[in-house]
Write a protein that binds this DNA or RNA. Structure first.
Lengths: 196, 196
DNA sequence: ATTAAAAATGAATACAAATTCAGCTATAAT
DNA sequence: ATTATAGCTGAATTTGTATTCATTTTTAAT
């Protein structure tokens, strides 16, 4: 028998993230992913059924990580709602800080898996949104958030803002800039623009 | 000679927006666009060089409209910075209220034209962002916006939030929901989440 | 009525790239 | 040393669809 050397599955997945980030899913060529992973084209198909599965795997593990961390945060009774909002911002930024390419894929290609034929991915997003809404409603019922805030609308806006911010950061992914985004977003969410 | 009947160019463009919105640019078939526009495949190529040009035309006219209206708003001396922020929100929502499909394309396919080989589209986005930053800095120098707000970061977040909000609205594009988004976003931007 | 040429058609073509698979390679077991 | 077989390769195949263009249709002018 022959033994597998290294971890080709992980190498291919990491390469796919880089190539999808650079070229976008549909422009990305399997040959380029194979080259970036230092394997042959055929090997990509030994580990992944096809190109679409590659993308789905990327989003599955991303959502798993985002949801696991966010759920822990939301259910932590030692945190107040404002700390939970900051925590969600941290969860999202920290999920991409070590892998800017993943952030670019998250922005550019999420809609490719979010289709009626793959309800799983719609569920992921809904679960994430519901966590956000839960924080907002908790803050409202405790009297520390504006009562007239529409939770659904606000969470949608925040999700879009975070996602695009991450994508813009990936254009020049230096850690200092991510910290600027992190602080700026928290500031805006807490207090808004207006001084009064 | 034969005379053109109707306005096929406009019909094709409108059909392309619908099909791109439904299927995404790369999944969309020229045949489906032709059918939706009630013309033949060949006719699409009489009016547009190729599929990419179709997408570029959509974004060109969208950006022209967004920038023209936003520039007028930002340069209106009768408005204070907070009114200008509300105005930008209105400009964006109003640009899609009559055509939800355009909103879906704006979210899903913008990155396809935003590439180094088409600097024009990078410029459009930059111009739009600079208008937003101008409003924020004006508000800060007038002492009505938080001085520690980072204009670039904040504008990026707002842009992403608006774009994703529009896209979520297009999933169920009833006017009442758009008004919920409009009011909710303005509320959040003005005062943030926290009551204190 | 006939004609000229613009407008429109859609079957045929071209082509890019995803996917396959027959053959090759490396290694664990004997 | 030999063998069996899992792991890997990449040229050849298949597939899907964008694009072309020879042909047909329409209508304005004569």
């Amino acid at each position: 028998m022959r033994r597998k050397e290294g971890n080709k599955e992980a190498d291919i997945l990491a390469a796919a993230i880089r190539i999808f980030a650079r070229d976008g899913f549909h422009q990305a060529k399997i040959l380029h992913i194979a080259e970036a992973a230092d394997v042959s084209v055929g090997t990509v198909y030994l580990y992944f059924e096809n190109k679409n599965h590659l993308l789905r795997k990327i989003f599955e593990s991303l959502w798993d990580s985002l949801l696991t961390r966010s759920e822990a945060l939301v259910n932590d009774p030692s945190l107040d709602p404002l700390q939970k909002i900051d925590g969600i911002v941290d969860v999202v930024f920290d999920s991409f800080s070590q892998n800017p390419s993943l952030g670019a894929v998250f922005q550019k290609d999420m809609h490719l898996v979010q289709r009626p034929e793959h309800p799983r991915f719609g569920d992921y997003l809904n679960r994430f949104m519901r966590l956000g809404e839960k924080i907002l409603r908790e803050g409202q019922s405790r009297g520390i958030f504006h009562p007239e805030t529409d939770a659904r609308v606000t969470v949608t806006f925040i999700f879009g803002g975070l996602r695009f911010s991450i994508n813009q950061w990936t254009l020049n992914p230096v850690p200092e800039n991510l910290e600027l985004f992190r602080a700026g977003v928290k500031r805006l969410l807490r207090g808004g623009l207006s001084l009064v």
